[in-house]
Nucleic acid binder design. Structure first.
Lengths: 336, 336
DNA sequence: AAATGATGAGAAAACGTTTTCTCACGTTGA
DNA sequence: TCAACGTGAGAAAACGTTTTCTCATCATTT
């Protein structure tokens, strides 16, 4: 009405084939009764003129937009991009596209984005954050579409996906044990983070009596500081350090090198996150726990699809397993 | 037809108000002739029942989906996320949402995503990559919608946006000069990158005769190596180093510290990228060139909007200015 | 008092699909 | 020869909007 599309519509195909639009539709969708020559002829003509059905029209009809919204509060993209990649990968086969909205902790902005997505009739919304113990600054309860939470707190009765922190900690300790380490400490982030606590608890359980956990910040600086605390002390120094993230691990490795302590010969280090930009560039490269973010994204995508298509999904917190990526900082990468 | 929407439509509002749908539409859009009491009454009823127009239906009518596609080949998100944030910020006010598609260098996948976006009638596509001298593995010429390229090579006659590398280099040298540095070298990435070459050329021009440019890789390791080359040499050592990215800068700073060379007292360092995860965590924190990615994203968003709405835009390569972010690695942060 | 004009509101068409319903035609069987 | 049936294809409605057109109704002017 306002503008005229230059795109080829089903009417153009019908005209070119000398049949009605209904016949074209049935021919292309392999539905209805029809002489098979007619069907083939129409298909070939449609291909010739480059017809592609207008998804908007179908959406209107089916009340399904084949679109989901990804709401993220993780400005930096550390989590969002791998997650996004997994979601997209899982959904592209189903013809579903993803709206990405960065809300930058702004409730107003979040509301605007959510409204825009609802207006565009998204089939579902995936909400992601940085922490499982913080919720987004917008209420997603009672929306007319399903919602899946990933790495952020969900409302009661919702589906929440996260990495299994305890599993990650166990993998790390297991590895350190395997390379013969016996005096292992855990240097991690603040105990105000649920994931830091869960990893710490699993660490304590795996290590047993005398387990040492040092809470600090998620920074390289804290890695340095922790090494200073451990080595300047009178007590015997550890031979294995499990770090709460790769930045801390980087700090620890650097601090040890400065002290002339060799990694991995004297001390084995395991990081957490497999943030390649850190893990790969640290010398030696970090053996680290990977949270399988892409797989988590894939799961989130498939889950939202299940919900959108009316299949029931078990509510509650679902923790997905981690995996260990072996590089050099832990040692034993050849002999095991 | 297939499923029945539980959402409230304009018909529901019409019924509730005891008027026709046309009247409701006109009332809500402030068009048509109508008693102002009627208009207000309808507006209030619409608000009461929570009516929000179905964007799909409008899109179908206007042949405008208020949606753009962002095609990215930058898996890691270093460029994509800030860009995305800027695009989104610029477009959200216009009611435009963004489809994000990560194509991971796969031509097949790219084609699938582009087709999906076209089917969904995007108003335009923004294509982004990592390098201005490489094109995406998919041909975006001749599409029925406008395309804007950012940080990737465009087809002839297209609109291409990128950061002004030469400007960035000039800002860096200017700063180093201002803090009194006279013997400045440039340690950067491979000369197979156009942006490395452009920065190097601008660097040479700014520094004048005797300018030293060292090409290597974009890694911390090269930063270390370059310092070794410079300091192990017989020649006098530089008092200022402009690095091609923050990772190299990080390597340089660390290597200098290991040699007992003080930064910024003895040598001033300027990085490039303002990748906060590096720039902020380096000790001392890096003074570095910021490519204004968010602003670039904003420009890309507004440009695609102009194109989508039929306003003409000058084709060709458009270089946006950089800015210098001052931290501690260059010195002079107080006295200037 | 009749013709003109202004005002308010509804009917219908349009956007591009899919699906249900209807119908004409030709074939088969009695 | 006629009824019953199967087959192929089109007409129309529907999805939720917006917009153009038409038409009452009522007030104003001659």
């Amino acid at each position: 009405m306002v503008a005229r599309s230059s795109r080829v519509t089903i009417h153009d195909v019908a005209r070119a084939a000398g049949v009605s639009v209904s016949t074209v539709s049935k021919a292309l969708n392999d539905t209805g009764r029809m002489a098979s020559e007619t069907r083939e002829k129409i298909k070939s003509i449609a291909a010739d003129v480059g017809f592609r059905p207008n998804a908007l029209a179908r959406s209107l009809l089916f009340n399904r937009s084949f679109t989901v919204g990804l709401l993220t509060n993780d400005t930096y993209g550390r989590f969002t991009l791998p997650l996004m990649s997994g979601i997209s990968e899982a959904l592209v086969d189903h013809g579903v596209s993803v709206f990405l909205c960065a809300i930058e902790d702004d409730p107003e902005l979040a509301k605007v984005h959510v409204d825009a997505m609802l207006d565009k009739q998204v089939d579902g919304i995936i909400a992601t954050g940085k922490r499982i113990d913080r919720s987004l600054p917008v209420d997603l309860a009672g929306l007319p579409v399903p919602v899946v939470y990933a790495f952020t707190e969900g409302v009661p009765g919702s589906v929440v996906l996260t990495a299994d922190d305890a599993d990650g900690a166990r993998l790390a300790v297991e590895r350190l044990r395997k390379v013969g380490r016996r005096k292992i400490v855990h240097v991690t982030g603040p105990d105000s983070f649920v994931s830091a606590v869960e990893r710490a608890d699993a660490f304590r359980q795996a290590v047993g009596a005398g387990a040492v956990v040092m809470h600090g910040t998620w920074t390289e600086g804290w890695g340095h500081e922790a090494v200073a605390l451990l080595w300047d002390d009178e007590k015997p120094t550890p031979d294995g350090i499990f770090c709460g993230n790769d930045q801390i691990a980087r700090g620890v490795v650097d601090a040890l090198r400065e002290r002339g302590v060799r990694v991995p010969e004297d001390v084995s280090i395991v990081g957490f996150d497999n943030w390649e930009i850190f893990a790969d560039q640290t010398r030696p490269a970090l053996t680290t726990v990977d949270m399988n973010l892409k797989e988590l994204g894939r799961t989130a995508g498939l889950t939202i699809l299940d919900l959108a298509e009316g299949r029931s999904v078990e509510a509650g917190l679902r923790k997905l397993p981690c995996k260990l990526v072996v590089r050099q900082s832990c040692g034993g990468d050849r002999e095991i």
